[in-house]
Design a protein around this nucleic acid. Structure first.
Length: 613
DNA sequence: CTGGGGAAGGGGCCC
DNA sequence: AGGGCCCCTTCCCCA
């Protein structure tokens, strides 16, 4: 009988490996993990996306599952995992992910002491016992009391501000160029050489075995300070491991250049999209500068920011079944890069600045408050990505488009351009009014307020009854009659006739059945949109639209065609697509009898009939 | 080369 | 929040 070990010896032949007496290859786990980490940083073969606070990380299911029972159960069924941000912030998760892939908490990321409790909480939450133990040891050594991970969690709730400060400090430490030191930051970056204390952060340096015994040798090329053992340096210049974290959405694009200069900020602040999505639009914060970190972490090379758009393409090409059309990817890439290029002060540029202030006028947390009823951001941060539309050129395009399709809002959008400090739509003849310090404007009555709180308080005073009365007045004095009918041709006439629609837009006179819909509609008149895409910065009037948009970034296409396997982001698209297989062409041209599978194609066809040429 | 059709992506908006 | 529909746009194919 030939035993396994014997066979192994034979295979290993030539003594090429320094086999121990027990046939173990000591460096095997190191090499393996090193490879995995490098693959992660490049997004190679990553098969799971982890969203934390709208920061996006990519990883390998196998690695996660091998590290944590919790992850094991999650990745079993899902490709997209969203973590509880009360338990783990994006920054902490970054550290954890690095730890999983390297077995150490890297010197550059060594959290300030208070952060170990945060880490401990997260490690417990994610069921990473080794890391939890490490944190406990660390806390113990530091004399920080902790009763258990749970205690850490209890004390945390949402890591929120305190942790965010710590987080910032971590960033500061990692990227010393990023502004001045911050209170709570641990001592400035130390020489990359490992210190004694660093060893304590090596799981493997103690008695741990296996992959986590890799220690800092994990990514020799990266230098000791490299985050994730890869990416080289604390300043983010990464020799070949440009992506420390996050999603490399450019994977479909030509292979990334090996190095991506410039710092890669970690997702620093939890107050990102999720926060911005909270509550009413009047309270919806625009993501603070921290978003820039998120953008960056998404892995787009700074010089090619819109590469991340390729994600969609990538996903497309990957997901597309035999009937797919990979070519689409390419054209979309090109298309998007084009508009990406136009971005004057895109999110990617902001990473150059300190974590709390990037583009002029951005102030980290105050921004959100500037997206109230009608937000006035221009005065504060002209040129800031949220003070003005982040993609002015794109906006212009859209404005142009809007002008042709919606007389209501386009008038202001298209006409005015970025429109000074006032984001409130102004009806025809509306003159530019200076609100002075009252940058928060109530749409219904156009009063300005100096703060979002005051505006919100004021908005409360607009009762629905009041609105109703107003509208009744409008009906009476009314423009009603034929004019109104004509105006509402686009509205579902049957429903319109059947149900009362007492809620009327003060700007365009459209009416709605309920105030919520009216409010939703009114947002379309704002010149600033309250829901920014956390990836590309594009702004939306509705959260749902933004979410849908995000899906395209992430390549999430839940709706698959049974026939050809092609996948879509929307059910409606799939329905539409299915007609390709069924041959159904429900849209018929009344002029020539031509039939179409898509209504839009009928419309463009009709245009051909009606156009003069 | 051009124009039309087919198919698909994306955003706006109402329900 | 999500579904559904509308519109604009793009790209490819083909006559």
């Amino acid at each position: 009988m030939v035993s396994g070990p014997l066979a192994l010896r034979w295979c290993a032949g030539g003594g090429r490996w320094d086999m121990g007496p027990d046939m173990e290859l000591p460096s095997h786990s190191k090499q393996l993990l090193l490879q995995l980490n490098q693959q992660r940083t490049k997004g190679f073969l990553c098969d799971v996306i982890i969203m934390v606070d709208n920061s996006i990380f990519r990883a390998h299911k196998n690695v996660l599952a091998a590290s944590s029972i919790y992850f094991k159960s999650l990745v079993l069924h899902d490709n997209l995992i969203s973590l509880d941000t009360d338990m783990v912030s994006s920054t902490v998760f970054q550290q954890i992910l690095d730890f999983i892939y390297t077995g150490r908490l890297l010197p550059g990321d060594q959290p300030a002491e208070p952060n170990f409790s945060t880490l401990l909480t997260a490690a417990s939450y994610l069921q990473l016992p080794e890391l939890a133990a490490l944190c406990r040891r660390r806390l113990k050594r530091a004399g920080k009391p902790f009763s258990s991970a749970r205690a850490g969690a209890a004390g945390l709730g949402r890591p929120a501000r305190s942790q965010r400060l710590s987080t910032a400090s971590v960033i500061q430490a990692r990227y010393p160029g990023l502004g001045d030191g911050r209170k709570g930051a641990h001592p400035p970056q130390e020489p990359p050489q490992a210190k004694g204390s660093d060893d304590e952060l090596f799981l493997g340096s103690s008695s741990q075995e296996g992959a986590h015994a890799l220690g800092r040798a994990l990514c020799p090329a990266a230098g000791e300070a490299g985050l994730g053992g890869c990416g080289g340096s604390t300043n983010g210049s990464s020799g070949g491991c440009e992506q420390e974290l996050g999603l490399d959405l450019s994977k479909k694009s030509p292979p990334l250049p090996p190095a991506t200069p410039g710092p890669h900020l970690p997702p620093e602040d939890a107050a990102q999209l999720s926060d911005s999505q909270h509550g009413s639009p009047s309270a919806a914060p625009v993501p603070p500068v921290a978003n820039s970190a998120s953008y960056t972490e998404l892995g787009a090379a700074p010089e090619e920011p819109m590469d991340l758009e390729g994600s969609e393409d990538t996903a497309l090409s990957r997901l597309e079944g035999p009937g797919g059309q990979p070519r689409k990817s390419l054209r979309h890439s090109a298309r998007k890069k084009e508009w990406g290029r136009k971005e004057p002060c895109g999110p990617f540029e902001r990473k150059e600045v300190g974590p709390k202030s990037a583009c002029p006028g951005e102030e980290g947390e105050g921004l959100g408050d500037r997206v109230p009823n009608g937000v006035l951001g221009g005065g504060v941060g002209a040129g800031g990505p949220y003070g003005e539309p982040p993609f002015p050129c794109r906006e212009e395009e859209e404005n142009g488009k809007d002008a042709s399709e919606d007389s209501g809002q386009s008038g202001s959008e298209g006409g005015g351009g970025p429109a000074g400090p006032h984001f409130l739509y102004r009806p025809e003849g509306y003159e530019t009014v200076s609100y002075g310090d009252n940058l928060y404007v109530c749409i219904p009555c156009a009063k300005g307020f100096p703060s979002s709180e005051q505006l919100n308080a004021h908005v409360e005073t607009h009762t629905e009854e009041e609105l109703f009365i107003k509208e009744e007045g409008a009906y009476e004095t009314g423009s009603g009659g034929a004019e109104e009918e004509a105006e509402d041709l686009s509205a579902p006439s049957s429903a319109y006739a059947a149900e009362p629609r007492p809620f009327r837009c003060t700007v365009c006179e459209k009416t709605y059945k309920d105030p919520a819909t009216l409010r939703q509609h009114e947002k379309t008149h704002w010149l600033t949109r309250p829901f920014p895409c956390n990836i590309c910065g594009k702004m939306f009037t509705q959260r749902g639209t933004m979410t849908r948009h995000m899906r395209s970034h992430l390549g999430l296409k839940p709706f698959a065609c049974d026939e050809c396997g092609m996948r879509f982001t929307r059910q409606y698209r799939l329905t539409e697509h299915m007609r390709v297989h069924s041959g159904e062409k429900p849209y018929e041209c009344q002029l020539c009898g031509g039939k179409f599978t898509q209504q839009r194609n009928l419309i463009s066809h009709l245009r051909m009939h009606t156009s003069p040429s």
